[in-house]
Design a protein around this nucleic acid. Structure first.
Length: 627
RNA sequence: GGAGUGGUAGCUCAAUUGGUUAGAGCAUCUCACUGUCACUGAGAAGGUUGCGGGUUCGAGUCCCGUCCAUUCCGCCA
């Protein structure tokens, strides 16, 4: 039988239907039971006369066949759109079961720990609020695309693997396998490519561009974001702004959003700074905030250059002359100030043809009329103190294009995620993205970033070099912070405990042998056991005492997992994110010695101090792992 | 890199100046129930209070360290 969308059941009283979806609640009264079934369209109540035949719980996926019945007047449920009907179940099939859900899904989820929500993002997205946001996002993108198509914009994709730039944000870097020692960068914005599309005669370009930068995250800023990116030829500043404004207004109203002022107010940068103390501001009243009205505004007449902040290394690097651009070096000065610009006069007073779009106190986008004349762009860099050589190196390819008939042009980039956030009335960007990252850059559901194998590193001509060195520092820091006395020594490279004992001039039995072992039961689980260097690890004992089967981890895996060379691994498993067990015999050592991350560095210290500092599992005091 | 806040049951939270056996709601399990709609009622199970150390007769609570999360600053269009 063909599946019916649940929302359609409200029109199908008296008809037999087959519906499929997820169980959200079960109300079991013994001889009668009610199941709430949800699909992408709605919820509906299903009645089981005679009760449940097989157990059904929240999250189960069911296919239900039954008759749609009009509910009696007093039994209607006004809270759901299908509240006038219910399904009298003839039969149901469990398409899939579900374990107990790790978090409730019948709430908006806002008060649930974000860590849990992101780990189970596929469940989190099942909640009504998240489904609405994803739908809104999709609808808004479609509406914007529609507005752009109407105006003859052409959608063009630009490369994801591109060139690292010195200006702007830190790049995300991708190593090149074919070109040892060379790297691509992921795009921070398609700025240069879209300008080249103007040279190409496209005249009107747009793209929903993924932009990526390696800067610290905030609630309203992730590593990657999506930008509504567009560029137009043969348009002046007013015309570009008007076109962008029309597109936004069309798209926002298409998804039911409300805009405060039409046309958008245009405010001078100076005036904004005087009035609001910032170049972004919130024009809404309290009432409008409650009703989720969007208050757009333009900010214009920004200074092109500012004095370099002596405390800012990046600015000092970019602006050797003492001047640095405020927004975008590819912008043009306003026509009235072109002469100053070309002569390098009144630099602090030159105004750029830059326009920022502000919405509800946030920066919604920024763009400008570009410098299409190569001399104007060159002059921008000259003002910042670039030599002719440096100019060629950083924007030579653009200058070349500008010398080959690039028309006057301008455009804008607008943060899509932010617009969705504002439209949805959300406070965090993460709510608008299906699989966002945590504030520390961990991905949802999957645990990235993760180490890659030594072979892969070799293929990419990469070597992770500083792990050993930083490990030494971290161990010293730990010991120093605890006020412990220890002897640190650097020596010739050693590979075995025997060699190490000899070179340290201590007895082999003082050595703390840190062994990484691998669970046979859990893929990718490594733990560390520390035993006296003059004894051997007994895996049978490990198995008996930890009630889990382990094997010695292959050298390659250990080195990949820890980033340290075999023989250099210190008994500080916590620093390597492993569980740590000390053999019982270690608790009796007066003096212990161990390598601390490098094969050429050892520490000798009090046994009791090591145990304190390395912080093994407390039950290991009683466990024996060595033979 | 810096500062703040937080981490107690699967989820959300509580626990008085440091004081008995760490509590509650939801979820789970068992039983009862033919009209519920966040069903209800009776019962049960569920905890290394992130981890380690210290102070104390006694620590979820105070101190130190560490890990994780989160917000802001730095950074970032």
């Amino acid at each position: 039988m063909e599946r019916t969308k649940i929302i359609e059941t409200k029109e199908k009283a008296g008809k037999k239907v087959s519906i499929s979806g997820w169980v959200t609640t079960v109300r079991d009264h013994g001889q009668i039971a009610f199941i709430m079934l949800k699909d992408r369209s709605a919820y509906v109540q299903c009645v089981l006369n005679g009760g449940l035949k097989e157990p059904v719980g929240e999250g189960y996926v069911l296919e239900i066949v039954g008759e749609v019945k009009e509910r009696p007047e007093k039994m209607r449920n006004d809270k759901i759109p299908t509240g006038n009907v219910e399904i009298e179940v003839e039969s149901y099939k469990v398409l899939n079961m579900s374990k107990d859900l790790p978090m409730p899904l019948n709430t908006d989820g806002k008060n649930i720990n974000e860590e849990v929500r992101l780990k189970y993002r596929y469940l989190d997205l099942r909640r009504d609020r998240m489904q609405k946001i994803l739908k809104l996002r999709s609808d808004y993108i479609a509406a914007v695309r529609e507005e752009l198509k109407k105006r003859e914009f052409i959608e063009i994709e630009t490369p994801m693997l591109t060139k690292a730039t010195k200006e702007g944000a830190r790049d995300f870097i991708v190593p090149s396998r074919f070109n040892p020692g060379k790297f691509y960068a992921l795009p921070q914005s398609p700025q240069q490519y879209k300008q080249l599309m103007m040279t190409a005669g496209i005249e009107r370009y747009f793209q929903f561009a993924r932009c990526i930068r390696d800067e610290d995250l905030r609630a309203d800023r992730g590593y990657e974001h999506t930008q509504i990116d567009l560029e137009m030829s043969f348009m002046n500043q007013k015309e570009v702004m008007q076109t962008v404004e029309d597109i936004i207004k069309g798209a926002v109203s298409a998804v039911g959003g409300r805009i405060k002022e039409d046309p958008f107010p245009v405010i001078n940068y100076k005036e904004a700074m005087e009035k609001y103390g910032a170049d972004k501001f919130d024009l809404r009243t309290e009432e409008e905030k409650k009703n989720n009205v969007l208050a757009f505004a333009w900010v214009v007449n920004f200074p092109f250059f500012k004095k370099v902040d002596a405390g800012d290394e990046a600015e000092k690097r970019d602006g050797k002359s003492g001047w640095v651009f405020t927004h975008n070096p590819f912008s043009s000065p306003i026509p009235e100030h072109l002469e100053w610009h070309m002569k390098g006069e009144n630099i602090g007073e030159i105004v750029t043809a830059q326009y920022d779009l502000v919405c509800n106190g946030l920066e919604a986008g920024g763009g400008s009329i570009r410098a299409h004349n190569p001399e104007v762009l060159k002059q921008t860099f000259r003002i910042m103190g670039y030599s002719e050589e440096e100019i060629q190196e950083s924007v030579g390819h653009m200058l070349e294009a500008f010398e080959l008939g690039t028309p006057p042009h301008g455009g804008i980039g607008m943060g899509l995620d932010r617009q969705i956030m504002l439209l949805a009335g959300e406070d965090s960007l993460k709510e608008t993205i299906a699989f966002p990252m945590t504030a520390t850059g961990k991905t949802a559901v999957m645990d990235a970033p993760s180490p890659i194998g030594k072979k892969d590193l070799e293929t990419l001509h990469l070597d992770v070099t500083d792990k050993g060195g930083s490990m030494v520092d971290r161990i010293k820091e730990t010991l120093d912070s605890l006020g412990m006395v220890y002897k640190y020594m650097e020596h010739e490279e050693v590979r075995t405990s025997e060699e190490a004992a000899k070179i340290r001039g201590v007895d082999l039995s003082t050595g703390a042998k840190a062994m990484v072992i691998k669970s046979k039961e859990y893929e990718g689980k490594y733990i560390m056991v520390v035993i006296p260097a003059d004894r051997q690890l007994d895996l049978e004992k490990v198995k008996n005492q930890l009630e889990e089967e382990f094997e010695i981890a292959p050298a390659k895996e250990v080195e990949q997992y820890t980033g340290l060379k075999l023989g250099s691994i210190p008994p500080f498993a916590r620093l390597l994110k492993m569980d740590l067990y000390f053999d019982k015999a270690m608790y009796d050592k007066e003096t212990v010695a161990f390598n601390c991350g490098l094969r050429t560095a050892s520490i000798i210290m009090k046994g009791s101090d090591l145990i304190k500092a390395a912080n093994p599992d407390k039950k290991s005091e009683k466990l024996e792992f060595a033979q």
